[in-house]
């Protein structure tokens, strides 16, 4: 078998188990989306599987002690470093890492063969084992955090900042009410219209462009990092983002002129004004009025209310 031949360390894994796992990976990632995939593409996919990692995982699943030792020795640091990234302290990280190992080994027993049913059974070999372990740790970290603080939306830390910003402080840093109510209302309406148009134009982007925008603007990644997630070079990401800007401007202008009845001049002026204002936060203007929240923020606001 080619995959076994590619492995640098031989493992006592039965062919049937290996074939079953490879078939499962093939079905999941290739044949489900392309049932008529040509043979060369199938061969390419199988050749790209991580042979060593897959054999190691299968050997662990079948209770090979040496494989478990190799797994622990080879990936202990990976799991711990991922746990540190997902935790706030060293003790928490170690606890998370321990729980990950327990999950990998399996806390339950399979009815079929009486062996522990661990998460290792879900490793396909498509990605590296290290990356898979990081993703496992990341997911467990998020789940764990949610269990600890059920009412806190952990994924949008910036929401809390905005929420805090939107609350009247009374210390003079941000006035609780605008000095001119009519002007404030007008600005709020304009800001809401712009925000809505922006949100819709982002939603209309194709998947890759939308992911790029979210990575770059919402998640705060650099272009290099966003490009790495997308699997493209930084320059490509930059060019793509420039193109996305053009598309979005057209869409926003179209929405504002057709649905809000603004002229092109008014649209341009409002966009310029909003952009100038947005040293701060457009969303905070929109949410400064109670009960008005852009899509996606309502959950955060509601989640905070019981705490208050």
């Amino acid at each position: 078998m080619r995959l076994r031949a590619r492995a640098s360390v031989p493992r006592p894994v039965e062919d049937s188990a290996l074939v079953a796992r490879m078939r499962s990976s093939l079905e999941k990632y290739l044949l489900r989306h392309r049932p008529d995939a040509p043979a060369p593409e199938v061969a390419k996919f199988l050749d790209a599987l991580h042979a060593d990692d897959l054999l190691l995982v299968l050997a662990c699943e079948h209770g090979d002690e040496a494989a478990w030792e190799d797994l622990m020795r080879g990936f202990r640091s990976t799991v711990l470093s991922a746990a540190r990234s997902a935790s706030t302290g060293e003790a928490e990280a170690e606890e998370l890492a321990d729980s990950v190992w327990a999950e990998l080994y399996g806390t339950r027993v399979r009815a079929s063969d009486g062996r522990p049913a661990g998460k290792l059974a879900y490793y396909s070999g498509c990605g590296s084992l290290g990356g898979w372990l990081r993703a496992v740790v990341g997911q467990l970290g998020v789940d764990r955090h949610r269990r600890v603080a059920k009412l806190v939306q952990t994924e949008e830390a910036s929401d809390f900042d905005r929420l805090a910003d939107s609350e009247p402080t009374g210390d003079g840093w941000r006035p609780a009410t605008a000095p001119d109510p009519e002007r404030a209302l007008s600005e709020t309406e304009a800001a809401r219209a712009v925000a809505d148009a922006l949100a819709r134009s982002v939603a209309q982007l194709d998947d890759e462009d939308r992911l790029l925008v979210r990575l770059y603007y919402f998640d705060g990644l650099r272009l290099k990092e966003a490009g790495a997630v997308l699997g493209v070079h930084e320059a490509t990401a930059s060019r793509r983002l420039t193109r996305v800007h053009g598309e979005m401007r057209k869409r926003v202008e179209t929405i504002l002129t057709s649905e809000c009845g603004w002229t092109r001049e008014e649209t341009a002026a409002t966009l310029a004004q909003a952009a100038a204002l947005l040293d701060t936060d457009l969303a905070s203007l929109v949410t400064s009025e109670p009960g008005v929240a852009p899509e996606g923020r309502a959950g955060a606001v509601e989640a905070r209310q019981p705490d208050g």
């Binding site: 603007y217 930084e234 979005m248 952009a275 040293d279 457009l282 899509e295």
Partner: peptide, 29 residues
Amino acid sequence: MKQEFDKQLDSLLRGTRGGAGEVRRAAAA
């Protein structure tokens, strides 16, 4: 490396981050 972005759009998107159409997946499944 960063090309000449549309500065207005850039500012608007930075200001509306997290609020522009993000869909939350409620169920872990």
